[in-house]
Structure formats: structure tokens, C-alpha cells
């Protein structure tokens, strides 16, 4: 890994879906070790930004780097460093959840014996041990969320990108995920979180970026942005939502 102080560096990123401009020359940076909340209304460009970072979307212009590696030209390096916890469950229907995790680790070049050890460890950590031989369709919504998190963590990424990780979770699971994310961040992992729950962003994050209509409208340290207001009030004020 390059000795970059920036986990994410995006400059003048522009993305169109046919004639629809999803991202309009957005630029921002996320420091290594930060806990970054990326907020915005539906359709603002959050998931598109994540897709560009992870290589799931092409883009028309701009520069996107993860720990100094260009996500297009040096994608083999950048992808090793990213763990993505997607918004919706998208698992291979032919595999048990244990097999899913083992294969996922091996795709990242982790030898089979180590992949199995990590899969066992994560299944235990997230209370999925008893379901190890089940297919993902047999899991509850909360269990699927946990499995998404396990899959994102299986290769021990430097940056964890979470696209609404607690949507649809009950309080117990939400607190479990929050605690785990805070612990990971304390251990030095960079965390990039999108969420519609303002209290989640306010509680967990150090830095906040707000995107609206494909443009970054506010970015900075949480304290600077809040200034004694609640994040919800700031968010509504900036995005103009009434």
C-alpha cells in the first residue's frame, strides 16, 4: 500500500447516465483513519460515488484515488484496499454463507486455509455460526445485513465503504454494528458511511460531506458543520428540504 495520508482523493469527478448528470465535478478527500459520513437525499449521487470508488461504475472525467492508487489505471491495487458493504443483499444463490465468505476471501488472493479461518471468525463474531450451512435466502433481513458486513470485512480492507448498513435493522443489531464500526475505526480502519439516519452519522462520524444534485454542498469536521445545531437541522437547511 502506498504511503498516502489520504484514503480517498476525488477531483473533478463527473459522471453521466446517458444524458442525466449524476455527479458534477465533485471533489473531496477523506483522510486515512477518518470516519466519514457521506450524506444526501435520495438520488443525490451517494451510491454513484461509491460505485465509482469501487469500480462498479465508469465515469466520464476526473481523478479518483484510493490510498494513492487510481481506481481505473491501478484498479488491482485499489480494489484490494476496499471493502464494500452494499445497500441490498446480493449473494450467490448456489452457495452456503460459509462458502460465500471463503470464496470471497480467495477472490482477494487469500489462501484457502486462511480464508476458512477468517470466515469462521467473522461468522462467530456476527452470530451467524449456526447458519453457516444455510443459503442466504434462509436468513432474516438482519442476518443478511450482518452477512454483507462479514463479506466486506473478509479480506481485512483498509477502508470500509458502507452504503446504508443499518437500514431495516432492529435497535439491537444497529447498536452491534455501531459498536463494531467504532472499534474498527479505533483500530485504524478508514470508514466511509452513507446513511439516511442523521443520528447515526452524528454519533459515529468525525467528518461529514453532504452531496445534493450531484454536487458537494458542504464538507468538513463534524463540530464545524454542526455548530450547536443538530445534524438533521443542518442537513435540511443545506439541502433545502422542507
Amino acid at each position: 500500500m502506498r504511503d498516502s495520508e489520504l484514503a480517498i482523493s476525488i477531483r473533478a469527478l463527473t459522471k453521466f447516465y446517458n444524458n442525466l448528470q449524476a455527479l458534477d465535478k465533485i471533489a473531496f478527500e477523506v483522510k486515512r483513519g477518518d470516519f466519514f459520513a457521506f450524506l444526501g437525499p435520495n438520488g443525490a449521487g451517494k451510491t454513484t460515488t461509491i460505485n465509482v470508488l469501487t469500480g462498479l461504475s465508469n465515469y466520464q472525467s476526473g481523478e479518483v484515488k484510493v490510498f494513492g492508487y487510481d481506481v481505473t489505471a491501478e484498479y488491482l491495487h485499489s480494489r484490494r484496499l476496499i471493502g464494500l458493504c452494499a445497500q441490498e443483499s446480493n449473494f450467490d444463490p448456489f452457495l452456503s454463507i460459509y462458502q460465500l465468505l471463503v470464496y470471497q476471501a480467495e477472490y482477494f488472493g487469500i489462501p484457502p486455509w486462511e480464508a476458512k479461518r477468517r470466515a469462521n471468525e467473522l461468522l462467530e463474531r456476527f452470530g451467524l455460526e449456526e447458519k453457516r450451512n444455510a443459503k442466504h435466502r434462509a436468513l432474516s433481513g438482519g442476518m443478511k445485513k450482518r452477512l454483507l458486513l462479514c463479506r466486506a470485512l473478509i479480506h481485512d480492507p483498509e477502508i470500509l465503504i458502507l452504503d446504508e448498513p443499518t437500514s431495516g435493522c432492529d435497535l439491537e443489531l444497529k447498536f452491534l454494528i455501531w459498536d463494531y464500526l467504532l472499534q474498527l475505526n479505533k483500530e485504524g480502519k478508514t470508514i466511509f458511511l452513507t446513511t439516511h439516519y442523521m443520528e447515526e452519522a452524528e454519533k459515529l462520524c468525525k467528518t461529514i460531506g453532504i452531496i445534493n444534485n450531484g454536487k458537494i454542498v458542504r464538507i468538513g469536521d463534524k463540530k464545524q458543520i454542526l455548530q450547536d445545531k443538530s445534524l438533521q437541522d443542518v442537513f435540511l437547511e443545506i439541502t433545502g428540504i422542507e
Binding site: 484498479y75 488491482l76 484490494r80 464494500l84 450467490d92 444463490p93 470471497q104 477472490y107 482477494f108
Partner: peptide
């Protein structure tokens, strides 16, 4: 095709595979 349909093709697309 099933990978595209279920979107689990992302498991491969996210991996450091050329």
C-alpha cells in the same frame, strides 16, 4: 447471466482480478 440478474456478479467485479 444469473450473476447479473441477482447482482452477485459484484463479488467478482469488486475483487482484485484483472
Amino acid at each position: 447471466f444469473i450473476g447479473r440478474w441477482h447482482n452477485h456478479i459484484q463479488e467478482i467485479l469488486l475483487a482484485p482480478l484483472s
